[in-house]
């Protein structure tokens, strides 16, 4: 795990040095690394995470320069792994895998989204626009990263857990969401944010969130159904 964290930090540093980190949102389980920093190293947030680092490019991307992220990752000893069936690209290393994601909007499209400015392609996924809409900047040393608001992260996990084909992954989503979600309820400011974000999302999404929470977290269910 130490190797993964070291490599993760090198990737983040390289993106920061190339002035592109500000245009990327870190999503997936590596957010928990930053949430722990954000909440003063609380032990209420599990350090468990996978070795897949997901970097989200907002849709539409607001990137005003050309940066060869492909080359940046190759310099960090990543190799490109191309999936001939789907057209998706992963950047692999024994310690860490990097993948790019982007919100799938409207009717969506099959196959990857080309992010020309960064020389990468990204997988389009539903509901990621939820994460891009509610973000927070967190400082780790001299580097500032963008991650979803913890409340948005929690609600998104509850939504996607119901869409997963892989049962084990769905269970992990629920555990992470419940753990973080219930911790957020203990912080007044975070609880307020959760209520605000929940009120802000479309009714259909609210229903999906509530159905994901139901049976998994009594505390969260009580709060969200009282709004």
């Amino acid at each position: 795990m130490d190797e993964a964290i070291n490599l993760f930090k090198k990737v983040i540093r390289a993106l920061h040095d190339n002035d592109i980190l500000k245009d990327i949102i870190i999503v997936g389980s590596w957010c928990l690394y930053y949430y722990r920093i954000y909440f003063d190293e609380t032990r209420h947030i599990s350090p468990a995470r996978t070795l897949d680092l997901y970097l989200m490019i907002p849709n539409p991307p607001k990137i005003d320069k050309d940066v060869d992220v492909n080359a940046i990752l190759e310099n960090q000893s990543f190799d490109l792994k191309f999936d001939y069936n789907t057209g998706y690209v992963k950047y692999v290393n024994p310690a860490l895998t990097v993948e790019f994601l982007t919100p799938m909007l409207g009717r969506g499209k099959s196959g990857p989204y080309e992010i020309k400015e960064l020389h990468v392609n990204a997988q389009g996924l539903r509901f990621l626009n939820f994460l891009q809409q509610y973000i927070v900047k967190i400082k780790d040393g001299d580097i500032e990263v963008t991650v979803p608001e913890p409340s948005a992260f929690v609600m998104h996990k509850f939504i996607i857990s119901q869409r997963r084909k892989n049962k084990a992954k769905a269970e992990r989503d629920i555990i992470a969401a419940k753990e973080l979600g219930e911790y957020l309820l203990t912080i007044a400011k975070q609880k307020e944010k959760m209520i605000r974000i929940f009120k802000d999302v479309p009714e259909k999404w609210q229903d999906k969130i509530v159905s994901g929470v139901k049976g998994n977290s009594e505390e969260l269910h009580k709060l969200l159904t009282s709004i």
């Binding site: 599990s46 269970e171 555990i175």
Partner: peptide, 10 residues
């Protein structure tokens, strides 16, 4: 169980 699943995925 979470750790077990993460290890399997890894």
């Amino acid at each position: 169980a979470v750790i077990h699943e993460i290890l399997k995925e890894e």
